[in-house]
């Protein structure tokens, strides 16, 4: 052994001592503030039934359009419901819709995109045609169609948004896969005897999914806003008040908006901060991982 390594004295230590730390510090304070905010919102939403807050459906908890005060932090709406409690319960619906929508988009679009980028050929042509078709289908019509025909439940609303996410997610996954499928490490894996399945899961997936996690966050932000738009059109989730529906109710009557703007502005602020956090965190992730690619 000593003989073989005798001529290897020039082997220098690899660069960059501690990557873990440098990645987290490169993400920056803004990223971690965003993450903290998202954890708070998601945590409150998850724990809503056990929190010491008013029932969101109970009227006359406060007065009509009563302003914020101790114990009624976000004030009350036109029927005296607790706006703070409404916002937390609204998060349950809005975040769930966003999460399921992105999950559907990633599972279906991501899988199709990776497979078509890896196998190419006829399968790729068919999948690419499906993506183009989905992209050219009017989004709103699709949402109206699905929710009217199948029902305005969390699942169907999320699914109609998820279907819209399939094509953009799939096209990105395909493009990312094309980049890496040409690299020699994929060829090397083939020569070593790795199966297609193993190449996709072990060689391609980590390279495709990590940069795309940034898109998942951005996409969830978009889905939350899109759900709000559907709520404005009256085709979102029927039971319960999502953020979109809550804002719509609070802002739809001009006199109420003038008398108690807080009933609309508090949920608007929470939506704004949440979507901003999702976008910012996603953007930072993308930048940091792109920079890492540049090192190569």
């Amino acid at each position: 052994m000593a003989e073989t390594t005798a001529h290897d004295i020039a082997v220098e230590a690899p660069a960059e001592a501690d990557t873990g730390q440098s990645v987290s510090s490169r993400l920056g304070l803004g990223f971690w503030l965003s993450v903290v905010w998202l954890i708070i919102v998601a945590g409150l939403a998850l724990l809503a039934p056990w929190l010491p807050i008013a029932d969101p459906n109970e009227t006359a908890v406060g007065g009509r359009l009563e302003g914020p005060r101790s114990g009624l932090w976000f004030g009350s709406d036109a029927t005296g419901r607790d706006v703070f409690s409404l916002t937390i319960w609204g998060a349950r619906i809005s975040l769930l819709v966003g999460f399921i929508a992105i999950l559907v988009g990633f599972l279906v679009g991501g899988t199709l995109g990776i497979l078509s980028g890896y196998f190419r050929g006829r399968f790729d042509s068919i999948v690419s045609f499906i993506f183009v078709t989905l992209l050219s289908f009017p989004a709103l019509i699709l949402a109206i169609l699905i929710t009217t025909l199948l029902g305005r439940t969390v699942f169907w609303v999320a699914l109609s948004l998820g279907i819209l996410a399939i094509a953009p997610v799939g096209r990105l996954a395909r493009a990312q896969t094309l980049v890496f499928a040409e690299r020699d490490f994929v060829t090397a894996a083939r020569v070593l005897g790795a199966s297609h399945r193993r190449i996709i899961v072990h060689e391609l997936l980590p390279n495709v999914v990590i940069p795309m996690s940034a898109l998942a966050l951005l996409g969830m932000g978009i889905a939350v806003v899109a759900e709000g738009t559907l709520a404005f059109l009256g085709i979102s989730v029927e039971d319960g008040l999502s953020w979109g529906k809550q804002i719509f109710l609070a802002a739809s009557r001009r006199s109420e908006l003038q008398d108690g703007p807080h009933a609309a502005f508090f949920p608007i602020g929470v939506v704004f901060l949440t979507v901003l956090s999702l976008n910012y965190a996603g953007d930072r992730l993308r930048e940091v991982f792109d920079a890492k690619e540049l090192v190569l």
Partner: peptide, 26 residues
């Protein structure tokens, strides 16, 4: 077989020990 571009020959997201062990896993 080994290839011309040594960096492209290795999966950037895997640790080198894992890369060397890959044939044994396969």
């Amino acid at each position: 077989m080994i290839f011309q571009d040594p960096i492209s020959s290795l999966n950037p997201r895997r640790a080198v020990r894992d890369i060397i062990q890959e044939p044994a896993h396969i």
